[in-house]
Design a protein around this nucleic acid. Sequence first.
DNA 1: TTGATAATTAGATATATATCTAATTATATA
DNA 2: TATATAATTAGATATATATCTAATTATCAA
Lengths: 92, 92
Amino acid sequence: MFFSRTFAALADPNRQSILQTLKKGEAPVAIIAENLQISLATISHHLDILKRADLVSSRRSGRQIFYNLNMSVMEEISEALLKFIGSKKTKK
Amino acid sequence: MFFSRTFAALADPNRQSILQTLKKGEAPVAIIAENLQISLATISHHLDILKRADLVSSRRSGRQIFYNLNMSVMEEISEALLKFIGSKKTKK
DNA sequence: TTGATAATTAGATATATATCTAATTATATA
DNA sequence: TATATAATTAGATATATATCTAATTATCAA
């Protein structure tokens, strides 16, 4: 339903770690990998999930692929949560 | 890491549907079940997950158990997301 | 106390996810 | 063009998750 893919993407600790790394600015996979103890193949897989959740984007530069944070979806989720909370009928 | 359990809980469409139902106020399982096409056992399982993610609470009244939305965690997540976004180094 | 009702728990299963190693693709450079 | 580098894709596997039916627990009412 709403943001299912994004919530699922945000639920994994390794993916959260990737997002933390990207907070400092765009980075190639090698840099992202420095903070993780999993294989490059698995990191690629996580990056794919983050991409399909619209949480990151990527661009190739030479042999490297740089990943970038995409903040708009997080904003949308934050807003949706606040709206959800706000719309709740509060009892007496 | 951060809110992993809650993000995972929010990722499932049936659980989202449960939260939507509870937005109108507390409800027993039978009412929650009206909007879902899955067994009561599975609904119990989803309610357990929502409870362990602190998204709902419950109280027994006679033979029924009433479930209730817990908004504080959603607030926390919303804030954490905004903080995360805000703390990102924006380039030039 | 017996039976009915409301919900959870147990046990099984099918699907999804995270992970790995090995193979492949894309790019740069000697 | 051959080789090295950066990353992804393929294929396999183990674990987690969603789901079901059947059994159990808790409560109420006859």
